[in-house]
Design a protein around this nucleic acid. Sequence first.
DNA 1: TAGTGGTCTAGACCACTCT
DNA 2: GAGTGGTCTAGACCACTAC
Lengths: 233, 233
Amino acid sequence: MTGRTITGFQDVRDEVLERIQNRVWEQGDLLPTEQELSDEFGCARATVNRALRELAERGIIDRKRKSGTRVAVLPVKQAKLEITLTRQLVEDRNALYRYALVQRDAVAAPGWLASQLQLTSGAPVLHIHAMHYADNQPFLYEDRWINTTAVPKVADADFTEVGPNEWLLAEVPFSTAELSFGAIAADEELSDYLACPVGTPLFQMERTTWFQAQAVTFVRMSFHPGYQMRSHY
Amino acid sequence: MTGRTITGFQDVRDEVLERIQNRVWEQGDLLPTEQELSDEFGCARATVNRALRELAERGIIDRKRKSGTRVAVLPVKQAKLEITLTRQLVEDRNALYRYALVQRDAVAAPGWLASQLQLTSGAPVLHIHAMHYADNQPFLYEDRWINTTAVPKVADADFTEVGPNEWLLAEVPFSTAELSFGAIAADEELSDYLACPVGTPLFQMERTTWFQAQAVTFVRMSFHPGYQMRSHY
DNA sequence: TAGTGGTCTAGACCACTCT
DNA sequence: GAGTGGTCTAGACCACTAC
């Protein structure tokens, strides 16, 4: 006995999790039904349901109607990455954030970008280069393309004071995105902006953002040498 | 009007999300109370509650007792990274997976590792080098340390057939972990195992795994050149 | 202190799916 | 067909917090 008093769904959830961790119920085992558990814990079935639903969302158990609830055989580890503004990344390190626009051009979408954003080749886009600094050290170099058609207002934004990320977050707040992470070698341009030798390994994140099935922006962010992105589960 | 029929919590959730996206309720705005929404939608308050709870979990809205529910000003983007077995990563690409143990040594924990895992310096650990291949091309190089004290059974595992990741997942299934991602340059050892020139930028993931406040393992995984990790939100 | 979300209950019906 | 989870309801009380 754990001596834990079971009153709420969190208690049920934690008790079930503990039994799984302690192998009272082994991987692949069938758990008691919601009805049986609610009888044991002396609570309503809805309470057990909510507890088990949370464990299922975490990938700890698998639930199927009729079959019942089983301990997951291969628990899927879901790490949450919180994608925040660069400003926040910097300020979370107690560093002074500074943003600088490098270049801003209204151009026609090159083929690879049109393909990436599912635009017709030559569609009008805005191409932006910008730098983000932490305590005046280069933090990351941003190479961004914005679909002018999806965000016409962007024509009036000069991005000298506010970065395109913050501007877009205010303008198109509830978008979806695809992310890609990798390592690249600094080319001459990056070595210049990030103050490192050509060939230095850099951590890079690419993001394509969509709003209501229309591509909004594609951005390639190259972090300073040694940058580490952290997460947990 | 959307013409959508509102019956379940998912309908309520989607309708509310749509109103937020369409700026019926702007960022920072106060939403109607659960009671008011349940009246409007003709459902129980519990149904509205569940709908709004999901949106709050996604970071779309902020809820506080007494104050009410507001549209989030800075929606936090949460990308989910599904951390799976290397075998699965490879097989998801329709490639043939192959694993090979390179080296296995029972040693005393060096200082940096003891610090990383919160062990006493010199504690017994198992040090493992292994390779993972996709269609017989190098996929990733694994450099792992296992805390023998936390997993005594590991002494009997030779890791010639089954990789340490799969073995540990069966042995210590429901652990927590800290992850770190970055870019490094291939040293001589990595260039050898991953068949690339010294200095090649490589994507690297480090993971420290814990079970019930005890460190289980620390692993450094160096991916083949050009590897991209993907996610979305 | 009063208003709001957080949770629980007891019961009901539905939807999926195994046999 | 029958067993299981999925969801909804109507009502209740609680916990937090702005006022």
